[in-house]
Design a protein around this nucleic acid. Structure first.
Lengths: 237, 237
DNA sequence: CGGTGCGTTGAATACGCTCAATGCGGGTGG
DNA sequence: CCACCCGCATTGAGCGTATTCAACGCACCG
C-alpha cells in the first residue's frame, strides 16, 4: 500500500485502473448539480467515476448535510448495490463528470459454502463502510452525544446477543474507549460523571446500568434543530 | 437498512448471520490480549467474529494508537484479504473470543469483464474503507493539518490525472469543504488565511497555487511527537 | 438599484485538552 | 501478611482553539 505524508495509506492512487482493462460501455455523463442517485434509490449497479468530481453526502432530518466524500476518477460509488441495499447516500456532480456502470455477475451459480462465505465477507466490508460513516458523523458531535450513542449502540448489540441491554459490562479500558470516541480519558471520565448526575445511567467501574434509555436517546440525538431557517448546517450543536 | 436514534444506519444488527447457514469449521479461540493478526501480516482469509469482543487499531510512528473499531459477533475483520492486501491494522481480543475463518472462492474461473467488474467493485469498497480510516484519523487533527492534508491529497490526485499538482481549481464551495473537513466555514476561511500568511499557498477565490509543498507537508504531518515518554497518546496536537 | 448568496473578518464564548494531584486496586516482593 | 508500587480512573485549575454571533464586502442577477 502506498504511503503519504500523513503516515496513513494515501487516499487515492492505488487501484487506479487504466481505462484499457475496463469494459468500455455504458458511460454516463453528469452535469454540475445532477444527481447520480439519491438516498433510498434501489441500485442495481455500482459506478466507477471516469472523469470529473462528485460529492456524496447524507441529509439529516433537520436539513443539515454530512459530506461523506468527494469521489474522483478511479473511485467507485454506489457500493450498496453490491449487497443489494438501496442507496445510503446522495451522489451529485460538482462539475461535468462521467461515470461507467459496473454491472456485476449474478450470484446464481451458487456452489454452497464458498459462495456464502464470499457474500458474508462482502457484507462484512459493506458493514465496515456503514460503521465508519456513523463514526464520521460522531466526529461532529458533543462528547455527551458520542458517549450516549456508543452506549446505546453497545446496549443494542448486547440485546441482539440475548444479553441484557440495560445492564452490561464495558469490556474496554477507559483509555481505549476515549481513544475510540476521540476524547481525552479525562473528558470521558467527566462526561460519564455528568450523565450519571443527570440520572441517565450508573457506572460502577466497568459495570454499566442504563437507567433512562429515553433520556439517553434524547441526549444522543442531534439536539438543536435551531429553527426552520434555510441556512443549512453541518456542524455540531 | 435499519435506523436508530442518531438517524444513521445502526452500527450493528443488520446482516447478522445465524450460525446455521455458516460452514461450521475452523473456529479459532482467542484469549484476552491475543492478536489475531498485526499490521503487515499477509492474510489469506477474513474472519467472522463469533463470540467475544475484539479491538482493531493502528499504531502510529510516534507510538500512539488509533482505535478503528471494537468488532463484535457478526462483524468481519481482515477484509484486506478480500483484495489481496496485507493487514492494514492490528486486531486484538479484549476478552475471550472466537472467530471463524472465511475462506473465499478462488477467482480462477475468470470469465472476462464481469469478473473484472466484480473485482473492481470490491476494490472500490475496500478503498472506501481505507479512505474512511484516513478521515477518521483526520478527525483528531488540527484545522491546519486537515486543510493541508486535503490539499496535498487533492493535488496528488490532480497529478495522477495528468494535470498540474501545483496549481488547480477547487471544485467545491467553502461550505462543502468545511463540512467535509468537519469545520465551520469561518474557521476554514481563517485557516486558509493563516496558511497564506505563512507563504505556503495562494488561494484566489477557487484557484489554488501551492507555493511551498514541503512546508505544507510539514504542517500536515503529526507535529509534536511530544517526547519519547511511555505514555501512549491518542489525541490531537 | 436593491436583493441574495457566499466568503471573509472581528469579538466573545464555550468546550475539550493539558497539566497536575489524588484516589483506588491489584500485583509483587520483602 | 503487609508494604509498596504501578497502572488506571477520577477530579481540579488554567488554557487554547474552534465555534457562534454579527457585520461587512463583493459578485451576480433580476
Amino acid at each position: 500500500m502506498t504511503s503519504n505524508h500523513s503516515g496513513l495509506p494515501s487516499i487515492r492512487g492505488s487501484f487506479r485502473p487504466g481505462p484499457h482493462n475496463l469494459p468500455q460501455r455504458a458511460d454516463r455523463i453528469l452535469h454540475r448539480g445532477d444527481h447520480l442517485f439519491r438516498t433510498g434509490d434501489s441500485l442495481n449497479r455500482a459506478y466507477l467515476v471516469v472523469a470529473g468530481i462528485l460529492k456524496s453526502y447524507i441529509l439529516h432530518e433537520d436539513g443539515s448535510e454530512q459530506i461523506l466524500d468527494f469521489p474522483l476518477p478511479g473511485d467507485v460509488v454506489g457500493v450498496d448495490a453490491l449487497v443489494g441495499q438501496p442507496a445510503g447516500c446522495l451522489v451529485m456532480a460538482l462539475d461535468t463528470s462521467s461515470v461507467c456502470e459496473l454491472t456485476l455477475p449474478e450470484a446464481d451459480d451458487a456452489n454452497g459454502s464458498e459462495r456464502a462465505n464470499a457474500a458474508l465477507a462482502l457484507q462484512g466490508m459493506y458493514q465496515a463502510v456503514q460503521r465508519l460513516h456513523v463514526r464520521l458523523h460522531m466526529a461532529s458531535a458533543t462528547t455527551e452525544q458520542r458517549l450516549a450513542r456508543y452506549l446505546l449502540d453497545f446496549a443494542n448489540a448486547q440485546g441482539l446477543r440475548g444479553c441484557s441491554s440495560r445492564q452490561f459490562r464495558l469490556p474496554m479500558r477507559r483509555r481505549d474507549l476515549a481513544c475510540y470516541l476521540g476524547l481525552a480519558t479525562e473528558t470521558l471520565s467527566r462526561t460519564i460523571a455528568r450523565l450519571q448526575q443527570q440520572g441517565l445511567l450508573e457506572i460502577d467501574s466497568y459495570e454499566v446500568t442504563l437507567l433512562d434509555e429515553a433520556g439517553l436517546r434524547r441526549v444522543a440525538s442531534i439536539s438543536p434543530v435551531v429553527d426552520g431557517n434555510t441556512t443549512h448546517r453541518c456542524n455540531r450543536r
